[in-house]
Write a protein that binds this DNA or RNA. Structure first.
Lengths: 192, 192
DNA sequence: CTCGCCTGTCTAGCGATGCTAGAATCGAAT
DNA sequence: ATTCGATTCTAGCATCGCTAGACAGGCGAG
C-alpha cells in the first residue's frame, strides 16, 4: 500500500500549497484578487482541482483563517512569556495582537471579517480558534479583577483590541499612535 | 426654468429611492443580495439609470453609510440627553450604539465593514461621519480623565464598542449578555 | 509484458455579477 | 408640427464561483 501512501502525501502537500498560495495572493493583492482562476493558475493546476480539496472558496478562506489562528496564539503566548509581571504581560499581549493584525491583514480578515464558514464559540468550534481565545485568557485572567468573570473580561478586552485593529487598518486611526492607545487600554481595563 | 427644476426634483427623488431600496434590500437579504439587476428591478428602472446617479455599487453603499451615520449620531445624542450625570450618559451612549448596530446590521456594515469609498478621519471626510464622531466625543469628553486627550479616549472607547458590535453580530458573543459587558466597559474605561 | 479499468485531471460551459456602448425614445423649444 | 438634445433602454462584455462530461495516465490482474 505504499503507492496509496505516496499519493496521500502528495495530495496533502498540494493542499498546503493551495492554502499557502491563497494566503500569499491575498496578502499581496487583497482577497478580491484571490479568484479560483488565478489561484489555479498559480498552483499550476486547473480550477476543478481546488474543488477536490475544498467545497469552495469559503473553505479556502477558512483554512487560511485556521492557520492564522494558530500563529496568533503562538505570537500572543510568546509576548506574554517574554514579559515580567501581569501588567507587562497584558501590554505585551495587546501589542503582539495588534502587530499580528497589522502584519497579516489578509489573514486577519480571513479570521474575523470574511465568511470562512467557521463556527465560533460553539461546541463544534475547531481547536485552533478555541486555543487562540485560550491564549488570551491565560494572561488576561490575571488582571480580570474581583467579581468579574474572566471569560467575560477576556471577551471585552479582545473586542477592544479587535476594534482597534479594524479601525486602524481602515485608515481611521493613525498607525503611529498605537502605543498610547495600548497604554490607555491596559491602564484602564486591567486590574493589577 | 420651472421645467428644469421639476426634473431636478424628480431626479433627487429617484436618488433617494435608490438609496432607500438598497438599504431595505440589504437589511432584508444581506448586501450580497443587493445586485445592480435586482436593485434596478425594484426601483422599476434599468441598470444604467443607477450609473447616472452613482459611479458604481460602492457609491451606493457609501450613500447608505452616510444616511446611517446621521441616524447613529441622532441616536447617540438622544440617549445621552435622556440620562442624568456623566456615567449614565456614557452607559446610555454605549447601549444606544450597540442597539443601533444590532437593529441596522446592513447599515452598520455599510458604515464600517464594507468599502463604501468613503474617506475617514481626513480633511475631505464628509460631514455626517465627522458629526457621528463628534456625538461620541461630546459625552465621552466628560469622562476622559486627566492627562488623556479626549480624542484619543473617544477613539479607544469607540473601538471597544465597534469590537463588541462586530463580534456580537458574528455570533461570537451571546446577545443576551450585552448589559454586563457595557457595565464592565463603562466601569473601567470611564473616569467619573 | 499487455490489457482494461479506474482514479484523477482538464476542457468547456452555465448562470450570475458589475459595468458600458450604442440604439431608441421621449419631451422641450422653436 | 418638427427638430434636436437629453434620457432611458436593450444588448453585450469580461469576469466571477462552480460543475458536468470528456479524456488520459498509471495501477493491478492475467
Amino acid at each position: 500500500m505504499s503507492v496509496q501512501e505516496r499519493k496521500q502525501r502528495e495530495r496533502a502537500e498540494r493542499e498546503r500549497l493551495i492554502v499557502a498560495t491563497a494566503r500569499e495572493l491575498a496578502e499581496q493583492q487583497g482577497w478580491d484578487a484571490v479568484t479560483t482562476r488565478r489561484l489555479a493558475e498559480r498552483i499550476e493546476y486547473s480550477q476543478p482541482v481546488l474543488y477536490s480539496h475544498f467545497r469552495g472558496k469559503r473553505e479556502i478562506i477558512g483554512a487560511v483563517a485556521l492557520e492564522g489562528a494558530a500563529e496568533l496564539a503562538v505570537a500572543v503566548r510568546a509576548a506574554a512569556a517574554a514579559a515580567d509581571g501581569p501588567r507587562a504581560r497584558v501590554a505585551g499581549l495587546a501589542r503582539a495582537y495588534l502587530d499580528f493584525a497589522a502584519r497579516n491583514p489578509a489573514v486577519y480578515d480571513a479570521l474575523f471579517q470574511l465568511d470562512g464558514g467557521l463556527a465560533f464559540a460553539q461546541e463544534d468550534t475547531l481547536e485552533p480558534l478555541k486555543d487562540a481565545f485560550a491564549a488570551l485568557l491565560e494572561s488576561l485572567g490575571e488582571v480580570t479583577g474581583d467579581g468579574v468573570d474572566p471569560g467575560l473580561f477576556t471577551e471585552v478586552f479582545w473586542a477592544s483590541l479587535h476594534g482597534l485593529a479594524t479601525l486602524t487598518r481602515a485608515g481611521r486611526l493613525p498607525p503611529e499612535d498605537i502605543e498610547p492607545r495600548v497604554e490607555l487600554l491596559v491602564d484602564r481595563l486591567a486590574v493589577v
